[in-house]
Amino acid sequence: MTELYHFMEMGVWLGFAAIGFAVLFNVPQRALPVIWLVGALGGITKLVILHFGGNIILASLAGATLVGFLSIPAAHSKHAPPLVFSIPAVIPMVPGAFAYRMMLGLIRLAGDTHADSYSDILNSAVSNGLKTLFILLSLAAGVAIPMLVTRKESAKKMKIIK
Rank of each mutant, 00 (worst) to 15 (best):
M1Y: 11
M1E: 03
E3G: 04
E3K: 06
F7V: 08
M10F: 08
M10Q: 11
M10N: 15
G11H: 03
V12P: 02
W13G: 06
W13C: 03
L14N: 03
G15R: 01
G15S: 03
A18C: 12
I19Q: 11
I19V: 14
I19C: 13
G20F: 10
A22N: 01
V23M: 14
N26S: 13
N26G: 06
N26C: 05
R30M: 06
R30W: 00
L32V: 09
P33A: 07
P33H: 10
P33I: 06
V34P: 00
V38M: 07
A40V: 06
L41Q: 04
G42W: 02
I44G: 05
I44V: 12
K46M: 06
N55E: 15
I56K: 04
A59C: 05
S60Y: 02
S60Q: 09
L61C: 04
L61R: 00
A62C: 04
A64E: 00
L66E: 05
G68T: 02
F69R: 01
S71N: 10
A74S: 10
S77V: 08
S77W: 15
H79Y: 11
A80M: 13
P82V: 00
P82Y: 07
L83N: 09
V84H: 04
S86D: 08
P92S: 00
P92R: 02
M93E: 03
G96D: 14
F98L: 06
A99Q: 04
Y100D: 00
M103V: 07
L106D: 08
L106R: 06
R108N: 08
R108C: 04
L109Y: 07
L109D: 09
L109N: 01
T113P: 03
H114K: 12
H114D: 07
A115S: 14
A115E: 14
A115W: 14
Y118W: 11
S124W: 00
A125W: 02
A125F: 03
N128D: 13
K131G: 01
K131Y: 15
T132F: 01
F134V: 07
L136R: 06
L136W: 07
L136T: 04
S138D: 05
L139H: 12
L139M: 12
A140K: 11
A140V: 13
A144V: 01
P146W: 10
M147W: 05
R151G: 13
R151F: 10
E153W: 15
A155D: 08
A155Q: 12
K157F: 14
M158T: 14
I160Y: 13
K162C: 14
